[in-house]
């Protein structure tokens, strides 16, 4: 039964992706990208990656869609035709990359394999069993994110800070150049 749902979701993802590529209406493309994110979130939930699914639904389907629509209101509603580049060349690049990625998955352990490195590595015992005795936090993701990997998360927040500042600087500067000198 789960296999059927997996295949169904994957098929929908492929359909959404092809539709986004073929559409010339940018508004419809943005909405379909949002649908794509929502489908990915469903897929992550099925894989028991609830925290990732949560983020994908909130960021991918929510905020980034709004920001894309905001960008759309500054530009045209339809994609201009006649983009440069050979379609054959693009197809070749995509096929090569895809083949390389599929080839790389042959080295990965099978899904749910108990002998996979993530289950046999010593850190597994620490994160999954010892972390509750140390912190009394049922959600391992939170204790790993905030405590074991506190430095990493600090770095991530700093990345968000700098990215936010950079975008704000770019946008406010462009407005000054467009507007009349004060």
């Amino acid at each position: 039964m789960t296999i059927a749902i997996d295949v169904f979701l994957m098929a929908l993802l492929v359909v959404a992706a092809i539709a986004v590529i073929r559409l010339r209406s940018l508004f419809a493309a943005v909405m379909l990208t949002s649908v794509y994110s929502l489908l990915s979130a469903c897929w992550f939930t099925l894989q028991d990656a609830v925290d990732v699914a949560f983020t994908e639904a909130a960021v991918g389907a929510g905020i980034s869609t709004v920001l894309m629509l905001g960008t759309l209101s500054l530009t045209q509603r339809n994609e201009k035709g006649g983009r440069g580049g050979h379609p054959i060349l693009g197809l070749a690049v995509v096929l090569l990359t895809g083949t390389a990625l599929v080839y790389a998955t042959f080295d990965m352990p099978h899904y749910g394999d108990p002998a996979a490195p993530i289950h046999t590595h010593p850190i597994y015992e620490e994160y999954v069993h010892a972390s509750y005795d140390k912190f009394h936090i049922p959600n391992i993701v939170t204790s790993v994110l905030a405590s074991y990997r506190g430095y990493d998360t600090f770095g991530e927040v700093t990345v968000i800070l700098t990215a936010g500042i950079a975008v704000l600087l770019l946008l406010s500067r462009a407005r000054e150049e467009e507007g009349p000198p004060s």
Partner: peptide
């Protein structure tokens, strides 16, 4: 970010 985009409009 939203203010910056919407403000430009």
């Amino acid at each position: 970010l939203f203010y910056a985009f919407a403000g430009r409009r």
